[in-house]
Structure formats: structure tokens, C-alpha cells
């Protein structure tokens, strides 16, 4: 009999407390962000620098070292590079990234010496066909970037390289254990 009234008391008491908690939510600010249109600034601008969105390649500073292609666990990066026998330059003939396969793991941008291949905060990559998700960065064969000794002087490449190196700086540099 005691447990009978105990049950009634507990039921009423806990429901009362629960109602008080939910009532206190009527004055709390909703947590929702009204993506995509009713926000003050584009959501991409609020994402952290490390955000791993769609991959992008700055061809100006790509050295053609193929480190990203080797690092990719699912082989979604395909690079064709050949060495020009006369100028002794690396010529990039193809740099394709299949974003349909890409799993945004970030393993490719880690070994890049210049920060050429990097993740952008852009994540809106929906498309109507798989084919259009293959990003072909090389339109016509170009010479790969050759790192200069000392600071970069070319005004078009300078800022790009600066951004690339800043991206690389985010990664932890290994120390002796």
C-alpha cells in the first residue's frame, strides 16, 4: 500500500519537474541555424581553417611530386606527369580528383610539400552525374612548380604559396619521440 502511494507521488513529482524543465526551454534561444538562406554570413565562412571540405588544387604551386597520389587510400587522385627531356621540367598532363570517391580523410594534403592540394571549406558538392564530380584540374599540360631558394618573388605565385604553407603549418610537425 505504501508503494502504491509512493508510485503516485513519484509519478506526479517527476512529471511536474519534467514540465518545469520543458517550460524553461520556452525562453531559451533555439539552437537551429537556418541554413542555407537565413543566416548572416555564408556558413562556409564560419568553418574553421582546418575544415575538410571539397578538395582543391593550386596548380601554380604543384610540384608534381605525386605524394598525394601515393597517400590516397582509395586512389581517387590520378596524376600523369612526365619529365620534359629538353627543359628538364616536370610537365603535368593530367590531375584528376574523383570527388565521388573521395572520403575527405585529409591524408593527401598532409604530405604535400607546398600545400597545393588542400581541403576547402566548400562542402556543397551535390551534382546530377557522377561524371561531373571528377574534377580535372589540368586543362592543358603545364609545367610543374619548382621551389625557389629563398622567398618566392613571383607576385602571382607568392600569395598562393603563402596560403599553401599556412595550410601545411596547421599539421603537427613530428618531433623525436
Amino acid at each position: 500500500m505504501a508503494s502504491y502511494f509512493q508510485n503516485i507521488r513519484e509519478t506526479l513529482g517527476t512529471i511536474f519537474e519534467g514540465l518545469a524543465i520543458t517550460a524553461s526551454h520556452f525562453v531559451r534561444k533555439p539552437f537551429t541555424l537556418q541554413y542555407p538562406d537565413r543566416i548572416d554570413i555564408p556558413i562556409q565562412d564560419t568553418l574553421p581553417f582546418r575544415y575538410r571540405g571539397l578538395l582543391d588544387v593550386d596548380l601554380e604551386i604543384c610540384t608534381g611530386c605525386l605524394a598525394c597520389e601515393r597517400a590516397c587510400p582509395i586512389d581517387c587522385i590520378v596524376i600523369d606527369a612526365r619529365k620534359d627531356t629538353q627543359t628538364r621540367e616536370m610537365i603535368l598532363e593530367r590531375f584528376d580528383i574523383d570527388l565521388a570517391k573521395c572520403m575527405f580523410c585529409g591524408l593527401c594534403s598532409e604530405p604535400c610539400p607546398t600545400g597545393s592540394i588542400h581541403h576547402t571549406p566548400e562542402f556543397e558538392g551535390a551534382d546530377y552525374s557522377l561524371e561531373s564530380l571528377v574534377r580535372r584540374f589540368v586543362k592543358a599540360p603545364v609545367a610543374a612548380y619548382k621551389p625557389t631558394k629563398g622567398p618566392e618573388t613571383d607576385p602571382t605565385i607568392g600569395p598562393v604559396l603563402k596560403r599553401g604553407l599556412r595550410y601545411l603549418d596547421e599539421f603537427a610537425s613530428p618531433g623525436a619521440s
Partner: peptide
């Protein structure tokens, strides 16, 4: 008593307020 409990829960959670029913 109910309102005092509501106030207690609000003070404990320290939320951002939004009094308008619309958002």
C-alpha cells in the same frame, strides 16, 4: 512553486534567452 522550479532550471543551465515566440 512551478514557476520557481522553472527559474531554477533556467539559472542552472545559464542559457541564451529568446523571449519572442517566433524565431
Amino acid at each position: 512553486y512551478f514557476l520557481s522550479r522553472v527559474v531554477f532550471h533556467i539559472r542552472r543551465a545559464r542559457p541564451e534567452f529568446h523571449l519572442s515566440p517566433f524565431a
